[in-house]
């Protein structure tokens, strides 16, 4: 019986993984932009920046990319966006329907996988199963991140004395959701004061997130729900338009900053 798949040895498989991963890692020890968090805002920012020709690395602590974009509220896998964010779904080629005027619904798995695919197609590189540990600060500016394998955090300290590594970039984007891990790390160092997100509900919180997506410390831009935490904005409901548009805004801000640095 003829073989279906080409014959390769075990060591060839291992070498392929090791060689390509490490050459990518080596190349991305320095990037234009490092984005921490691969949820909808981080992925959108990454895709836009890579499309603009920038070298972009995304750090994601989970194995899977996409954050909460796979499902909507109450574990139901329909995602909703409010106008004009359906235009982003359109750009991604995600089918959607108008549920009521200005409110659009799409399948979470379709939307999320298309967004991940678009980021990959644009040239974004990912380090998944990699956790943000610290920031690199140089000349009063965020100049990169310190990361480690996610499993290291989950094991007892006495058997995991694994030092992290540093990756440099001109800009870092905090897309870590309500945790705002990067901004909080700056707060620990006394460099920034986050406000903590509010619990009061207002419909306009998505607009507020987009409007406040900005550079909050030299070299650090916040996007998505991290914006709520840094600025003390009200919580949002399970709609994703604000996340997608905040990601776009973060990319615009990053491009402006990169231009200033040229």
């Amino acid at each position: 019986m003829a073989k279906i798949l080409a014959k390769v040895s075990e060591k060839d498989v291992t070498s392929a993984i090791v060689d390509t991963f490490y050459s990518m890692l080596r190349e991305y020890t320095e990037s234009d932009v490092i984005i921490v968090g691969a949820g909808p805002s981080g992925l959108t920012a990454a895709k836009e920046l890579a499309k603009a020709g920038k070298k972009v690395l995304v750090i994601e602590r989970n194995n899977y990319l996409g954050g909460g974009f796979w499902i909507g509220g109450f574990l139901m896998n329909k995602i909703t966006v409010r106008a004009p964010a359906q235009e982003v779904l359109e750009e991604l080629g995600v089918p959607y329907e108008e549920y009521t005027e200005g409110l659009y619904v799409a399948d979470g798995p379709h939307a999320c996988s298309k967004l991940i695919g678009a980021a990959c197609d644009a040239g974004v590189k990912f380090l998944n199963m990699t956790s943000f540990d610290d920031v690199v600060i140089r000349d009063g500016k965020v100049a990169g991140v310190v990361v480690n394998w996610t499993p290291v955090q989950a094991l007892p300290r006495q058997i995991t004395c694994v030092d992290p590594i540093a990756l440099e970039s001109k800009i870092v984007i905090d897309a870590t959701g309500h945790d705002a891990f990067v901004a909080k790390k700056l707060e620990e160092k006394g460099l920034l004061k986050t406000r903590g997100h509010g619990s009061m509900w207002v419909e306009e919180s998505e607009d507020a997130v987009i409007n406040h997506t900005s550079e909050v410390y030299p070299g650090l831009i916040v996007t998505g729900m991290a914006v709520s935490t840094v600025f003390g904005l009200p919580r949002m409901g399970p709609t994703f338009g604000g996340m997608l548009l905040s990601g776009k805004r973060a990319a615009e801000v990053a491009l402006e900053k990169l231009k200033e640095l040229e």
Binding site: G198, E204, N211, F231
Partner: peptide, 28 residues
Amino acid sequence: RNPNKREFYEPFPVEVENEKRGLIKGVI
């Protein structure tokens, strides 16, 4: 900023800029 605290903070530049531009949706 926080529903459980009455604390005022030095604003970020974008917040002052947004006030000038009237971009205050969702702000309390």
